[in-house]
């Protein structure tokens, strides 16, 4: 079976972002960029399936600027076989990413596409569901366990509001990862070297026939209201007193 994994290059989760003073956007120049954490989990899962003999090939895809090649190399160093960069400097919205991934899926004919459940920059949590819709495939979102059964289906566990839900999906399908699916490996130095020689093809949204014209206009971006500074209390007694008499929440 062949797996496609979608990975996004985002501002590293440990970096505090800077909002441009004129409210026109977030300044990402010179910030540390990394693979979206959920996508690392998706790559790890795909590579594990390959190592377990459940998958034959893992292809990583990213839509983004030239710098996303670094992110794809990371996926290759983790164990992906090939990579495709759909290069564009535009901010591509989830619907357009889903259309691009659909076009790639048409070329690659994967048995499953793995994505993160959400990108930690736009926090949209849409792309996987949209891709499943466009392909007419079933979707398994927010998964914390998944196992192909070797007979054309995948059994998976989803993290939902009340607990956990187990589904069985027919292949081909779309899966989106939650945090507890696995713990992604660090690429070893030899694997990083090897990754440099693995194939990385570059195409564009135009070549795939997909418009990336935005549907949402960003009118303004601003910092959320700051909380006013609190106080440090000296004791449990003082805390209870403040909660009762000052905050009046008890």
């Amino acid at each position: 079976m062949k797996l496609l994994v979608a990975i996004k290059r985002v501002v590293d989760y440990n970096v505090k972002i800077r909002i441009r003073p004129d409210g026109s956007g977030v300044d990402t120049a010179n910030l540390k960029m990394s693979m979206n954490p959920f996508d690392e989990i998706a790559v790890e899962e795909a590579v594990r399936w390959k190592e377990q003999g459940k998958a034959a090939e893992v292809v990583a895809v990213s839509v983004g600027p030239q710098g996303a090649q670094d992110t794809l190399r990371t996926a290759l160093a983790m164990g992906a076989d090939r990579a495709i960069l759909v290069q564009t400097d535009a901010e591509v919205e989830p619907l357009a990413v889903a259309k691009i991934l659909k076009a790639i899926a048409a070329q690659e004919a994967p048995d499953a596409v793995l994505l993160g459940k959400q990108a930690i920059d736009d926090d949209s949590n849409q792309t996987g569901q949209m891709l499943a819709a466009l392909l007419g495939w079933p979707q398994g979102t927010f998964i914390s366990e998944a196992a192909p059964d070797g007979a054309g289906r995948v059994t998976l566990v989803r993290e939902v509001d009340g607990g956990l839900e187990t589904l069985s999906l027919a292949l081909p399908c779309v899966l989106t990862t939650d945090l507890r699916l696995n713990e992604p490996r660090y690429a070893s130095l030899p694997n990083i070297m090897k990754a440099k020689k693995k194939p990385l093809d570059v195409t564009t949204p135009e070549a795939l026939g997909v418009s990336v014209a935005p549907r949402l206009a960003l009118l303004k971006i601003e910092a959320p209201p700051a909380r006013k500074a609190g106080v440090i209390v000296a004791s449990v007694a003082e805390l209870v007193d403040k909660l009762k008499n000052e905050a009046k929440v008890l």
């Binding site: 849409q126 927010f142 549907r215």
Partner: peptide, 19 residues
Amino acid sequence: TATGKNVMPRVAALLDVQQ
């Protein structure tokens, strides 16, 4: 909610809408 987040983007894509 988990349900809303699961279902609505699928609806949006079928309608060619950016959620």
